[in-house]
Nucleic acid binder design. Structure first.
Lengths: 183, 183, 183, 183
DNA sequence: GATGAATGAGAATTCATTCAT
DNA sequence: TATGAATGAATTCTCATTCAT
């Protein structure tokens, strides 16, 4: 039974998932080998073996968070009808990220926060920004519009997350509209 | 002499400044009573006396940073000619925050994003958002435009900070333009 | 002297009561000037002014606890009919101290614990032991019986408090009986 | 060598002994990882590794003290002639715990009473009560008598410890007698 | 007299990391 | 290869006490 663990190819994976849960619960500052070990139910030595430093752990977790987020955005776009009202759709995306997926959204912005300090995390965060822009680009006439929409979306989400304000129905769409219509 | 330290009315103040420098140097995760004590050259006990918890320290630092930032934004707007091109002016503000005061901007966003984890910091961050919006409101025809501009400004600054991309001349102005003109 | 008390004459008293609540909540180890100050809603300096050392605070609190306990025992005996069954009455006293007044009883034994270490508390604890013996002596033919009953009562209460065992109806009376009947 | 300390299988054990000495010297309130580390001559980190919390330390100390005490009581009973006068023998046991091993007895009761505050210590203290009762049961006709004798012994020891009173020759035996004879 | 400020010691913990096995 | 043990630094926080006002 104990030796059955010898071949445990998912272990590293489970540790990454555990790390994400730890960041979710305790924040980035609260991510530690010990907590991950406890959360993944593996020995402490196992975490330091697979992730030599705390930063390795952090990057692995944030990388997965960002992959997941990008996949979500990609799926969202693919599910949109080709003639969808982009401002309306984006508004709904923001609203949902503040209600249904608030925890997940917070995680995403913690990634940004970490990137401000850790050089190793910067590319991961940049990849998120670029990924969102690329997805929006499929629906906009030019790069500039996609970039502006990505920035506005990010800014709105962050500000609403921080202020706790609940936007009135239609408010977000009205704010996004001018940029979409700028075609 | 030995007792010259005993009465020191500016001490609390100096500790707040020290805390800001500590966050600047070591990041939010590196903010500790010990480091502030060392940086402000006061005994450790003095920091815990004035700031019972680490969060108190964080809030005090963010409060000062945000006051300073809001004052800066306010001054910026007052110095603008009444017929200034708002999109151009805002674009320059963002550009300067990324070139001239990059370190400072990073610091601002770091404390700003700290609000995601620390409830006590939330109101201060919200105050920043509202403050910027109020200043912009003096130049916009309605609340919605001010809010959208504030969000776009925030989003652009953060994204450029993260990706390290340097916007082409005129690029930011072009992104902001559609919102300003949305009158 | 009179004028010194004019301002808030009950303050010292309130601090003692606060100290008792603190011991009740946090245990003797948790008794501190700060907690008493908070509990009594007085400035910290006020507690150190009236109780120069932590031990002063401790002794004052325990003295009042013991007074209160002795008064309770005294009242209990006075309320007993002169021909009461002493074993039965004592059994009920023990039972009540474990159910109704469990917190109070625990406080009493914390007093004993403190007395083992603090010389200043020893006399207070000894006074409790002697007081109970003296009260029982009014109902026993000789000193020896009173002493034995006091010891058995204390031992039973403590053991039941520690084991959490609930004595069967009549059990305690049966245990006490032989000593009472030793007349 | 430098690594001579690295493998040290008795270390945990020595720390428990050190903890007992610390409680003996400084009281329960004075038990700390730091003091145990100093007393056992091990690094501070080693104490927190083996005993994560102060309570763990306390429980380990009490557990050993109680084992030792129960063994002592067991030995005492085994060494008694089968026709020994139980009241006399118990009286001598109490007297010796107050003269020969007063410090040790104080230590025992201090850890014993710690159970009032610390839930984790409760079972160990309860085990002491039950153990003494079980040993006495070998010499008493029924459970009730054993329990009463255990309680009376405990109560007497504690009261004499607190008051510092020295019982007259034969006094304790006389107090215990009625319970033994209660067959 | 009363009290806010100050301070140095020490508390329990948590931790990343190293190392022997 | 994996991991339990070990360790020294650092963490936040609480505290009794002193002192200037």
């Amino acid at each position: 039974m104990a030796s059955s663990r010898r071949h445990d190819p998912d272990r590293r994976d489970r540790m990454v998932e555990a790390a994400i849960r730890v960041v979710d619960t305790h924040g980035i500052a609260g991510l530690s080998h010990r907590r991950v070990a406890a959360e993944a139910d593996v020995p402490l030595g196992s975490t330091t073996y697979h992730f030599a430093s705390r930063e390795d752990l952090l990057v692995a977790a944030l990388r997965r968070i960002s992959e997941r987020w990008l996949t979500g955005v990609d799926d969202w776009e693919r599910a949109l009808p080709s003639d969808a009202d982009l401002a309306r759709a984006l508004a709904r995306l923001v609203e949902e990220s503040l209600t249904g997926g608030r925890a997940r959204t917070r995680l995403e912005y913690e990634l940004y926060l970490a990137a401000l300090r850790h050089d190793a995390v910067r590319p991961v965060a940049a990849h998120c920004v670029d990924g969102l822009t690329a997805v929006l680009r499929r629906r906009t006439p030019d790069d500039a519009t996609a970039r502006a929409l990505a920035a506005l979306t990010d800014g709105l989400t962050l500000q609403l997350l921080l202020t706790g304000r609940v936007p009135a129905p239609g408010e977000l769409r009205a704010l996004l509209e001018p940029l979409v219509g700028a075609t």
